[in-house]
Design a protein around this nucleic acid. Structure first.
Lengths: 237, 237, 237, 237
DNA sequence: GTGGTCTAGACCACA
DNA sequence: GTGGTCTAGACCACT
């Protein structure tokens, strides 16, 4: 039987989540098997049942377990696991997964963000432009700090998205936010990447500012092509 | 043969959420005002505080309230409400909202689903094709029942998405699932819509089956154009 | 201040009961035919056999089905359906049924409640009078809200019953409670009904308070005659 | 010929109910104290929790215990015990209780059954008369066997009730059935009672048969007066 | 094979 | 920790 170490610090349920995610993703806990009952887990983790339940709810949202009233909580098959959940990605840091996830992301961005840029160019209003402007300035000031830079990058893309004024696109774009950030932080540690990215964003911004949709689409496509090269370079190492 | 729909336990917090969403969206509870305290609400609803807290968490995710530690829970301004949340959409069935949301959705689908269809055509494997095939057959059998049909429709699009084998696209597509269903059920009550939709899906399916990405893209574009006409016809009445 | 209604967990078997009652009463499921077996229904409803059995037990108590050990569960002929079951009454909202049920009820009340009022007048003690007093006040405060009023009405009649100190009468009276409420809510939506009912109840209360059995009987008879006129007015429309 | 009573699987929860009713009514378990928890009782009785819960549900319906969610199950004060519950009556065979319950019943019958007899006389149809006729014959054949006789008596009264064709009266009358049987079996052991009762029922039957409501009412009143004398005779001993 | 009953144990909601 | 509800599956008796 598997035993758990008691947790102690704050955000108790997060620690429980991490402990269980790790065991599931590593294969130590096999799909189809049941977790211990809630009271049993509460005892093992030295926490209250409320905390355990909170953790189970999170695991269930990630698709890692299936909670069945009256029957117990069972570990699901890997195909129902959210393939893009960052906790899960973090747990399995295998190269293969990483590579293919980033490739998927790049493909999705090629489809999605070029058109977003075009629409944004056609519809951006003053406040959108200001937001992008600020983001670009922030990037200029952080070309040496890739963590700060990737945040500025995220802000820029969010402003672009917002400028489309299309709530469906915004919702879809937002669902990728977390993963996008992850990707940006991965590639932005490469030398030279940030400066090129900065140039690309300036180009996109200018196209948007003058309302030139076609140019914005092209600039975005160019940016993504560059990013893709970076990703490949990073991963083929 | 008589068939029954599965029953489903309706959890307490969901009922509380619905009650409060209704009052907020209808304007009966005004932005800026505070909800009663958690113990007070627990008493009014005849439920425990845990249940009330769960409901508040959901409301907060929908952007309807802002929970401030130590200060109380306040109703937010309408601009922070999730514009695509189906509960909120259901609560305010005004025409204007509906129209613009469906227009946003159509625009997003034009960008997204044509490429999805093309990728699916290139990558679909046997199980994907079978899933689509089943969905098409289900649609054929339910052209008289628009609720059942729109579920079959949803199954088809999910299978198409799945066939892209791109987890980022799947995630983005899934984030629109609920709204898509909503849209389908709205338009599918129009006469003649279902038969046309069926023909369109058969065309898409055939293109995907023979691996012809360009044809799949075209077929999807045609389908969406038709749907858009239906939406407009429905709303401009 | 905003008030909320208590939420209530809807049990699974209740949903199954409602689904089947509707199909039987509507004639979709014909008398004489068998329901699917318990395991089969459990599968269709996505619930456990225990839940399905609970539902069947309720259906059987309503007289809608006949459960035969080892043979199956069959839908009965309409004459064995409980003619006063509120679920069944709700499912078939035909006029004829409604009329005759309310007529039966009025006849029973004429026999029963006049004597109850007389006995109550002879035996009521301080706490009974207080309960009636409160009910009367509640009625005074709710002449504009017929749902609240009919609840206050029910409280009054229960207090009167209680004042007889006769446990057999109390038991018999209670067996009619649900149907009485149903009747009150039906008639109390007529204009002017509530005010007259209020005056009648005040008269009954005063007679009871001064211990005048004959006057209480007379006042109750007058009240019921008035109610009967209302019922007839409502139904003969 | 010796006959055997059918054997019957005594359900587990009934045995638990009887055990606990006895202890509560005898005062061994005092009002205000808590019963052990459900799992604890399940262990003590060697049954599953489901069976224990079924027993507690019955006890709660009898008013002997108060089940409080999350807090426990407590024994209530005697005033909330159902004064007409046959199990409770059986458990406490004190004279006083018995006397007053039977007096209540007689009073209720005076109010109720005289009018029932009158209505029955006005509305009885062929099948009702046949049912009563059979019951009378059965009584004639069982004047020596007071148990069988009291069952025939019950059948007669049910047929009378049925003849009123009033579903509300039938429902109210049925709610007294159990207690009525109890009363009949108590008095019918007196010598001479059965023969008088037989004569009374023949008189009622004849009045009903010739459709004479007033005579039926009178005959029933006479019968009840006789029964009341028997009850008093029995109890004042 | 159907319904009747029971078990063991789970999650859900409450104090 | 309590009671409330549900699950899964067993054994039995009846048709």
């Amino acid at each position: 039987m598997t035993r758990y170490k008691p947790v102690e610090a704050k955000r108790l349920h997060v620690q429980i989540v991490e402990a269980i995610v790790g065991r599931i993703v590593s294969g130590e806990l096999e799909p189809g098997t049941f977790l211990p009952s809630e009271p049993e887990m509460a005892m093992q983790f030295g926490a209250s049942r409320a905390v355990v339940r909170e953790a189970l709810r999170v695991l269930s949202e990630k698709g890692l377990v299936e909670i069945r009233h009256g029957a117990g909580t069972r570990i699901t098959e890997p195909e129902s696991w959210d393939p893009l959940d960052v906790d899960i990605l973090a747990a399995r840091r295998e190269r293969g997964t990483m590579v293919s996830v980033l490739q998927d992301l790049m493909e999705a961005r090629r489809i999605f963000e070029c058109e977003v840029a075009a629409l944004a160019a056609e519809r951006a209003e003053e406040d959108d432009l200001q937001a992008m402007q600020s983001a670009v300035r922030l990037m200029q000031g952080t070309v040496e700090d890739h963590v700060a830079f990737s945040h500025a990058d995220a802000v820029f893309h969010r402003a672009l998205l917002q400028a489309t004024r299309n709530r469906a696109l915004i919702k879809m774009g937002d669902s990728m936010r977390e993963l996008l950030t992850f990707s940006q932080q991965t590639t932005s540690s490469l030398p030279g990447v940030l400066k090129r990215a900065l140039r690309d964003h300036v180009a996109i911004f200018r196209a948007v500012k003058r309302g030139d949709g076609a140019a914005a689409r092209t600039a975005m496509r160019k940016h993504l092509a560059g990013t893709e090269r970076d990703v490949k370079a990073l991963l083929n190492l």
